[in-house]
Design a protein around this nucleic acid. Structure first.
Lengths: 110, 110
DNA sequence: TTTGTATATTGCAATATTACGATATAAATA
DNA sequence: TATTTATATCGTAATATTGCAATATACAAA
């Protein structure tokens, strides 16, 4: 099929899945890492930083934006992108659960 | 195409992408959440906990295992699954970078 | 040994994703 | 106004993912 049965899962599970899926591509990881590295918004040079064509990068940026992981602000001719805390804070809550799990792994069996 | 140009990105970027992609499905989130909740291995009742067929769940478990996010141990007739710290520790390192970014967001522009 | 139980694999149909050339749009500049 | 520059959208081909029925495998129990 190729179609995910979203209706069988909770809103939270679907939200987390959408976020993780959006992160799940090396080009989108590279975009996120670049935005972390420069420590601010980036106006208009992302295309030059990635080994993909302009339409492809535009598509990846759109997906990150749809997932709530980056924000884009029109700045005259160019667009300024930066990380969006909204999306990442949901991931943070999830990973903190995981950290707690591994810190208290008393009853492990395998 | 549908084929990711992995060779254009770093090993780290590809590894992270594979991990995030594996998490990026509500059924696999549900499996992870269930393993967190029961706080131990789970032997043989995952199929009853999810609203998907047995072959589909088997496939999702395989993907989580391939990504290094869960471990499975054969226990007679059943298989015991638990979370695998190996995979999650890589994600932890990545999210900690992000946390630092948002804690020091002095030079934000959008 | 036969039967039951749990999980994996195969095969396939439907849909999603990735990538990019061509083209559109919109602002900046000459 | 015409041209350049930056980004988005469209259309399409190739490949990947999702889901399940059917079947296989492997151990357990009768």
């Amino acid at each position: 099929m190729g179609v995910t049965k979203s209706e069988n899962f909770t809103v939270e599970q679907n939200e987390l899945a959408i976020l993780a899926k959006a992160i799940g591509h090396p080009a989108r990881i590279a975009i996120i890492q670049y935005l972390i590295k420069v420590k601010s918004c980036v106006c208009g040079d992302i295309v030059n930083k990635l080994p993909l064509s302009q339409p492809t990068i535009s598509q990846h940026l759109k997906e990150l934006k749809n997932a709530g992981l980056i924000k884009g602000t029109v700045e005259g001719n160019t667009i300024c992108y930066c990380l969006d805390e909204a999306g990442f804070s949901k991931i943070k809550a999830f990973t903190e659960h995981l950290n707690l799990y591994f810190e208290n792994q008393n009853n492990q069996c395998c």
